[in-house]
Design a protein around this nucleic acid. Structure first.
Length: 409
RNA sequence: UGGGGAGUAGCUCAACUGGCAGAGCGCCGCGCUGUUAACGCGGUGGUUGCAGGUUCGAAUCCUGCCUCCCCAGCCA
């Protein structure tokens, strides 16, 4: 029972069954005395079985209600902590296991589910193979300083994967087009609305795609997902109060700016960004405010990016990569690149960045045995969910958020 | 990690310059045959984050610690 309202000899029970909430009407003179006294014991979040007749009534939320003939309590809940008034975020996160029952969280999780299955369908239709990467690993895909480490039997240290990218590159050489989709982990000591220590990432990898083919696939995916939830989860979006017209504008083609152009635009708007620096939060907001749909920025300075990104053939200070920024201030949701497919250059990049070469022995094999041009990207699921749902913090975009200072429930 | 803010009833918050710790919601009781976060009346509810200090007197001032929130950096 989600909530109850009464007017003496007539009671209105809001009952949730997983598919939604229905108003049930109970009139004292129309039911037996056992049912009437049983319903009086019901408290918020008590579980129950009801029997009644569906009827149309304009006064019911949604236009229909259930006229009850019988109520059977299953369990009487006591002192349910989450009431119909406001609560603080700390309290709600401590009660996340119960907060998931609240309507706002309920809508978000249904949209998240639709996004996940939409993504899988998108790739299946395009003949990608789902090839999931290991979570326990020794490969270092990003910064070595943000690894969660653990003991691994007699083999020493292992860590939780920061990315599955190196593994999907291996998969792409076997299957052509692959993706992995699962949790990734970053021990970043950051407490912002844009970070979780555990988050889900979709990572497609495609043989024979150059960086432009890569961007074309990214925008096709993002458009597909946005249209998909508008089509199938419109009620949930409305329940969240999401501005639907903003989502309806998510149509290809998305605007594209080179990093050089973006810096020029930002400096014209008063930003003090220097060429070579990555965008700060304020820069991202300034940039995306110029456009009404997601924005690509491509061709970033090499120094600011990961070792595996391919150098621009005419400009060695730049790599063939792109970031996709969501509109409305939601920030980066995708990072992608064409990969360095030349063995010697790749080894040089690993040394330049001071990474442990021995950690990449099997990865370098991919360049020794039939290397081909290939590209891929990573899409942050929670950032995508937060944007599409209009949430102001990632912690509501995942069922049980893991933050620097929060490991329960 | 740096900067800012906060911690008082189960929850959300008040309490002026240091002077009786309060309200709404929840919960309990009564009333009400169409409620929409129902409503009306009555009741219940406190180690003021922790430890110490100043004072006739501390939620309020001082010292130390803890916790949470927001912003920045880093990133998806």
């Amino acid at each position: 029972m989600y909530n109850q309202r009464s007017s003496g000899r007539i009671s209105f029970l809001l009952v949730r069954d997983g598919s939604g909430i229905a108003q049930c009407v109970l009139v004292e003179k129309d039911v037996d005395s056992d049912t009437w006294s049983a319903h009086q014991r019901l408290t918020q979040e008590s579980s129950l079985m009801v029997c009644g007749k569906v009827r149309e009534d304009a006064r019911a939320p949604g236009g229909y209600e259930l006229a009850l003939t019988r109520v059977e309590p299953v369990q009487i809940a006591e002192d349910y902590p989450i009431g119909p008034k406001e609560h603080g975020i700390d309290f709600l996160l401590n009660n996340r296991h119960l907060w998931l029952r609240s309507s706002r969280q309920w809508h978000v999780m249904r949209i998240r589910d639709e996004i996940i299955f939409g993504i899988r369908e998108f790739f299946r239709e395009r003949r990608f193979v789902c090839l999931d990467s290991p979570i326990l690993t020794r490969a270092i895909g990003e910064e070595a300083g943000t690894l969660f480490e653990t003991e691994y039997f007699e083999l020493g240290k292992a860590s939780l994967a920061q990315t599955g990218q190196l593994y999907v590159e291996a998969g792409a050489m076997a299957h052509g087009k692959v993706y992995c989709f699962g949790p990734t982990f970053r021990a970043e000591k950051s407490k912002t609305r844009r970070h979780l220590t555990e988050f889900w990432m979709l990572e497609p990898e495609m043989a024979w795609y150059d960086w432009q083919d890569n961007m074309a696939l990214q925008e096709e995916l993002v458009e597909f997902v946005a249209q998909r939830i508008l089509d199938r989860r419109r009620d949930d979006l409305s329940g969240l109060g999401r501005d639907l017209t903003a989502l309806e504008r998510v149509e290809r083609p998305f605007p594209r700016l080179s990093y050089d152009e973006a810096v020029e635009l930002l400096r014209g708007k008063g930003s003090r960004i220097e060429w070579g620096e990555d965008f700060g939060g304020e820069d991202q907001t300034l940039l995306t405010a110029e456009f009404d749909r997601p924005l690509f920025v491509h061709s970033f300075p090499k120094a600011a990016k990961a070792f595996y990104m391919k150098e621009h053939p005419e400009r060695p200070e730049v790599v063939l990569c792109d970031d996709l920024f969501a509109p409305e201030g939601y920030g980066e949701i995708i990072g992608g690149s064409q990969r360095e497919d030349d063995l010697e250059r790749l080894i040089a990049r690993i040394r330049e960045q001071g990474l442990p070469e021995e950690a990449y022995d099997w990865y370098l094999d991919l360049r020794k045995y039939g290397s081909v041009p290939h590209s891929g990207f990573g899409l942050g699921l929670e950032r995508t969910v937060a944007w599409l749902c209009g949430l102001d913090h990632l912690r509501e975009a995942i069922p049980f958020p893991r933050l620097m200072n929060r490991i329960t429930p």
